[in-house]
Write a protein that binds this DNA or RNA. Structure first.
Lengths: 241, 241
DNA sequence: CAGGTTATTGCCTGACAGTCCATAACCTGA
DNA sequence: TCAGGTTATGGACTGTCAGGCAATAACCTG
């Protein structure tokens, strides 16, 4: 059986201290007036990944997606009216400091207050948000949400908006430093007009997704292979202070 | 554009102390002689989930999949020869004690020693195994691998085979009990012929996938709001003996 | 009942998240 | 110049959990 297939994208960005999703408004067709995820039909000689990248570049001016990954494929018979269309959804992340121009029929909407959406697009959006929130906890996906350089406070604001709940600046910074996700640049941010101590600036060490092995519970036992410098001297008594 | 679409399944089971995948051998066609994942073309009026369930029931006698979830969709142009076929892969898990009859052209293969496989099926299999191993750590997916009732040692053997590395029985049991994934049945397993203390038997509390919130790092601050009534019965002191 | 076998429990350690608080480093205005 | 406000940072403390080890429990056979 031959079927139509489309690629869709849940494009997320932290804007105005809130997690928002990029939607565009159907100007005709069966879902006229409701909001839809960007995307469209798969073309002849492209993969799904190429397709969604092309369509995002065409329809909306999002040239600098920091991250793009496949989310899921929906195949419900009635998900589209009139004829059957399979849809493979992607999750895209835009850094908080990017201010790309979008067409007139597109707009950012807070994920906490989604408008009336076409077909199953609201449900797909929820999947994307859930995926982002989960991955913020056990990967370095924050690099895709944050600006290139940021202070601990700025990063806290981004995480708080994305996760949708309070985040401790102290704790966040310590966790990400310990996991070696973020690194101090050595530069300082100028204090605000009200004064205050200047803040140290950080950047993410990598700009590609990387899973924290921290959460490999039931992990393989570490082969105690001491480097050829530190020998049998028990590590429990090696403290010199 | 209209495309062919197929559903495939990575069906995994722990057999003979090793994680194995169910494959069948192409008896004709372009990949004749190599091993393939079970599955086939999407039919007219079915979803992808229905399709893979139907095709598994038809082609191989796996009636009691304990778990089935969507894995990913492959869309490489050259993944199939001659014409373009999109493939959505599923991950299926069979409990270790199920001994279903499979057709003559199908066989179980150790994932640690995969045979020559058709198209991109080897790569899809690796994805499925990786997904299973990850989810064993932060969900209760073990319920799908283990028998309905088991001892700590039996469960350890299943996890060790599935994860592919040593697992401590003590630690495994403690973790799963603390997470309230497994519960003591109260029954005892008879000792083996060599003697030994009889082992307590356990079962999984739920037989549906459930994510351990344990790994929600940067989690929302807990509002210490004890529900009026159910708090004083601390579970740690509820032991009556 | 001695000795072998398997299961279970109880400590101990180290790592980490989460919270609180003291201190540092800047500002403005008197 | 300094007092007081503001923001940032680091240290200390706690509780939870994973991982490892060893002692004990409960069965067997000869």
């Amino acid at each position: 059986m031959l079927t139509k297939h489309e690629a869709l994208a849940v494009v997320l960005q932290v804007r105005d201290a809130a997690l928002q999703v990029l939607l565009w408004q159907h100007d005709r067709g069966p879902a006229m007036g409701s909001w839809a995820l960007p995307g469209g039909p798969l073309a002849d000689r492209e993969t799904l990944g190429q397709s969604i990248a092309r369509q995002l570049a065409e329809k909306v001016d999002v040239r600098h997606l920091a991250h793009l990954e496949q989310l899921e494929t929906r195949s419900d018979l009635e998900r589209a009216p009139r004829e059957r269309v399979l849809a493979t959804a992607y999750l895209g992340i835009v850094p908080a400091d990017e201010r790309s121009v979008i067409p007139a029929d597109a707009a950012w909407h807070q994920v906490a207050a989604l408008p009336a959406m076409a077909f199953d697009h609201a449900s797909i959006t929820v999947s994307g948000v859930r995926r982002l929130r989960a991955k913020l906890c056990y990967t370095n996906l924050g690099f895709a949400l944050a600006p290139k350089v940021f202070t601990a406070s700025e990063l806290q604001a981004v995480y708080q908006a994305a996760l949708g709940h309070d985040v401790s600046t102290t704790n966040l910074k310590r966790i990400l430093v310990r996991r070696q996700q973020i690194i101090e640049t050595g530069t300082l941010s100028p204090p605000g007009r009200a004064g205050g101590r200047p803040a140290a600036q950080y950047r993410f060490r990598a700009r590609e997704i990387d899973v924290t092995d921290q959460f490999a519970v039931l992990r393989p036992p570490v082969d105690r292979v001491p480097s050829p410098g530190d020998d049998e001297v028990s590590t429990t008594t090696a403290r010199s202070d």
